[in-house]
């Protein structure tokens, strides 16, 4: 066995990755060869120095906390999926038979469908949509008058903003403010439905639906994304995206998105 051969595979020898017969041959050679012994000593000490130099660093404490919160969201979504399948369709069947059927299909889709990998930019924007709702930033313009909201956004957003109107009379516009989604200017419109908050974000981003899932509810095309177990429903009209998010159950969010009048 040559020194050349031993030195070429010294790394694998130190790693204990040679087959037993070759390992023994190596040991025999090393015992008798001071030159290769020096290479071996260097290989070993270099390995240790590398470990010390680029070795472990401690993960920051908040990383674990932050991850646990994400897992909570996943667990919550899992539990909710389960209870919808068992309970929800009953209540829905009573009021809106067609909506109930549509909702059941959507729920089953949500349970068995694997999450699609959306690109990070639109994923970030969707996370923004959820965060903006959660933060509940105060309105800049308040009240139910859509005219005032339209005037408020003039000159602020590069597109005219008209608040969506809903067929359900229980959904009321309560305010609006200027905001950014990702880096894009957006209109945040706040609604209330039976005491629950709904946030509608209007912005220009055709990309947001590129990896979205798509369905039809009441003859209208509704896109939707799963964001950490929450669903964001999206309608598109006139080059604008209307993203709906709220403290509502999933079927209701689809229903609202489908019924919203975004075209005038």
């Amino acid at each position: 066995m040559s020194c050349k051969l031993v030195r070429r595979h010294l790394g694998a020898f130190v790693d204990g990755e040679l087959d037993p017969a070759t390992q023994i041959e190596f040991e025999r050679h090393l015992e008798a060869c001071p030159g290769c012994q020096e290479h071996l000593a260097f290989e070993g000490s270099f390995r240790m120095q590398t470990r010390d130099s680029v070795g472990r660093v401690q993960a920051p404490e908040h990383l674990w906390e932050r991850t646990l919160r994400r897992l909570d969201e996943i667990d919550q979504a899992k539990a909710e999926h389960a209870s919808w399948v068992e309970v929800r369709p009953m209540r829905w069947r009573h009021a809106w038979p067609i909506a109930a059927a549509a909702a059941a299909i959507l729920i089953i889709g949500g349970v068995v469908g694997l999450p699609k990998r959306s690109d990070y930019q639109s994923a970030g924007m969707l996370q923004d949509v959820v965060n903006l709702h959660t933060q509940a930033l105060p309105s800049d313009v308040q009240g139910e008058a859509p005219g005032e909201v339209v005037r408020y956004f003039q000159g602020k957003t590069p597109f005219p903003v008209r608040p969506a109107q809903f067929e359900e009379p229980s959904v009321k516009l309560v305010g609006a403010r200027y905001i950014t989604v990702g880096t894009r200017p957006a209109a945040a419109l706040y609604y209330i439905h039976n005491g629950r908050r709904i946030t509608l974000l209007v912005f220009q981003s055709p990309d947001i639906v590129r990896n979205a899932q798509r369905t039809h509810v009441g003859g209208r095309e509704v896109y939707y994304h799963d964001v950490g177990g929450n669903v964001v429903t999206i309608r598109q009209h006139g080059g604008l995206s209307y993203a709906f998010f709220g403290d509502l159950d999933r079927p209701m969010l689809f229903q609202l998105a489908a019924n919203a009048r975004v075209a005038y």
Binding site: G55, V57, A59, L71, K78, A79
Partner: peptide
């Protein structure tokens, strides 16, 4: 169903936590 989710979660956390530093590094 929820008990099952909670049990899986405990198991996962217990297995993952010792490797957090390795993943972060």
């Amino acid at each position: 169903k929820e008990r099952k989710i909670a049990a899986t979660r405990r198991l996962f956390e217990g297995e993952v936590r010792p490797h957090l530093d390795a993943l972060y590094s």
